[in-house]
Write a protein that binds this DNA or RNA. Structure first.
Lengths: 335, 335
DNA sequence: ATGTGAGATGTAAGCGCTTTCAGAAAGATT
DNA sequence: AATCTTTCTGAAAGCGCTTACATCTCACAT
């Protein structure tokens, strides 16, 4: 039998109500003596409140859900952990989940809706078409999204890759590259339709420089798929001067594949990736990468969520941040 | 106003009890017609149960907490994600949290205890001295731990590094290394006292081979600390033939530092790491590493937890698994 | 007819907590 | 001394759900 509020109350010789007042409201009018007695006894018998009961009674939990597409992806986990700090700093607790998809492919939101949390932060929401999602409320729960795709009508922190992917291409051009290919997963068509900013930046810059766009598209399972696709592309068309990669994992996989066909990554083929994973500077060659302003994203997201929790009726909040290009050996050849 | 069970019941013209029976018990005796009506209406008005209420009423949630030291560490996240699959495969839900420490340094377990979950799986529990933890119950909740340190009296899946770290040392010896140093974080003293199996394996093998043990100990913050420490060690004592590294992150950081002092990792200094992070094969040189049998660990842990949830009084369950040495270029020089 | 039991449903208590409301005690004000 | 405040505390309802237990209705055997 767990120790409940009533246990504390009984031993202290007060009613549940009083015990509850002591254990929660700092401001509640309770005699100093009573308060101390209750606190002492609670500590003595090791009382911990039953959160389910508390949630049921109050409708609040001081907990938010952090919801991510794929926690294992380095970038998601960066955001998730930064967001976690932000949330805990603000004295909320959190629970982290992957998105879950139903068999029909739709996002399964039921769990989030049922679960006793005060709000949800969604990292890299896949597209904007979450059923039941409207106006920053997911089944009545405040929701803020963080990601690199434009979403409308919901609170959203948007990271615009376009300027920096264009900058990356120009940078590659400036170090002498003329055949700059975009290495991208085969959600490609989808990226086109979703107006992916990386793609937009790439195409804009390529055109401005008077170059030819070139795409190397890999199968879904990225890490293992990059090698074969890249190698056969090279066999057919020869190697490009440079690879602009959808993310750093692809850069790393590409790097290995290049070596396997006798090319030195960073020398023979320059490399730029995206996201700035933790190992990027320690990799060999050190990776040039377009990093997202993770801390700022998280801080803004929290602000948005806190505001909406306080008042669900405020207008939609959106903010656009830009990424940053970190230049290292993999694109300069200097390592 | 959220839609509640009662809403469904009212519209269907039945009592809450009946509605509840329909929505839960597959076996409950409800007229086919009634059942269908209730289900239809529930779907129509988009009913989702209030988990807090459910948890309060039943004392169960079909949810387990996954508790980790540092989710961002590659190894933890491997285990966490594998464990996640295992849990979801068994039709449970999960919530993931980092360990939280109180200001006095003790583990803060209150949150886990209060939170409505049926059990907890702790990944890499720091030592065994969790207050309130006894006999696989954490404040009355079933708990299973997964990790590389011996814990007593609690359900535990133990990964024994000793045989494989000894094997790693012998392997390095067999490719010609004679000065094989152990690169380890400065929790070192602690590892000694905790009888760290990596260390034990290392020391055993070194002694058997008649070699001198050599330690390179880094400051807490591993990723940034490895470089300076390793470089100054080399400046003072010259470079060892090989580095046995506490984990793959340290291998990667070491690798960079070696290059910075003009040594080629994998050629001039052989490298073996631990954990088998996702990028280890794609790294340059490809990393030799001692991998843990993550899937098996998770499967066993789930079995343990499921059993204890069903019956909290069964005797302590423990199992020892061994790691596996994956040999790649960083130790053979062949890349 | 009568009894029996299975099947279907409703009633009500209770899970552990918060919170409104009202009442008691104590002090302040006239 | 009577009244009014203020301070403190308890009673009780209710959050949304489950689950014994009670009830009622038939179909069927006797």
């Amino acid at each position: 039998m767990r120790v409940s509020l009533r246990c504390v109350a009984e031993r202290a010789g007060v009613s549940d109500a009083t015990a509850s007042r002591v254990l929660n409201g700092v401001d509640a009018p309770v005699a100093r003596e009573t308060r101390e007695r209750v606190l002492r006894i609670a500590a003595e018998i090791g009382y911990t409140p039953n959160l389910a009961a508390k949630a049921l009674a109050t409708g609040r939990t001081k907990t938010v859900a952090l919801w991510s597409v794929n926690l294992r992806a380095p970038h998601s986990s960066q955001v998730v952990y930064c967001m976690r700090d932000e949330i805990m700093k603000n004295d909320y607790d959190l629970t982290i989940s992957d998105f879950k998809f139903r068999s029909d492919g739709a996002l399964d939101t039921s769990r989030i809706i049922s679960w006793p949390v005060d709000g949800v932060i969604a990292v890299d929401l896949p597209r904007g078409d979450v059923p039941g999602l409207s106006n920053s409320l997911l089944g009545g729960k405040p929701l803020v999204s963080i990601g690199a795709y434009v979403l409308e009508n919901i609170d959203h922190v948007y990271v615009d890759f376009a300027p920096m992917s264009a900058a990356a291409v120009r940078h590659l051009h400036s170090v002498g590259c003329r055949r700059i290919a975009y290495l991208v997963p085969n959600w490609f068509e989808w990226f086109r339709s979703a107006d992916d900013a990386r793609l937009r930046g790439y195409e804009t810059a390529i055109e401005q420089l008077g170059l030819e766009p070139e795409f190397i598209v890999t199968e879904n399972e990225v890490r293992v798929a990059v090698g074969p696709v890249l190698k056969s592309h090279i066999a057919l068309h020869g190697a490009p001067d440079a690879l602009f990669c959808f993310n750093d994992n692809m850069t790393i996989a590409a790097s290995r594949a290049l070596r396997e066909v006798g090319l030195i990554p960073g020398r023979d083929v320059k490399l730029v990736g995206c996201d700035g994973i933790d190992d990027s500077a320690d990799f060999y060659p050190p990776l040039t990468t377009v990093v997202q302003p993770v801390e700022e994203m998280c801080a803004v997201a929290w602000t948005f969520l806190a505001r909406r929790i306080k008042d669900p009726d405020i207008p939609v909040q959106q903010m656009t941040l830009t990424a940053k290009l970190e230049i290292r050996g993999s694109s300069t050849g200097d390592f």
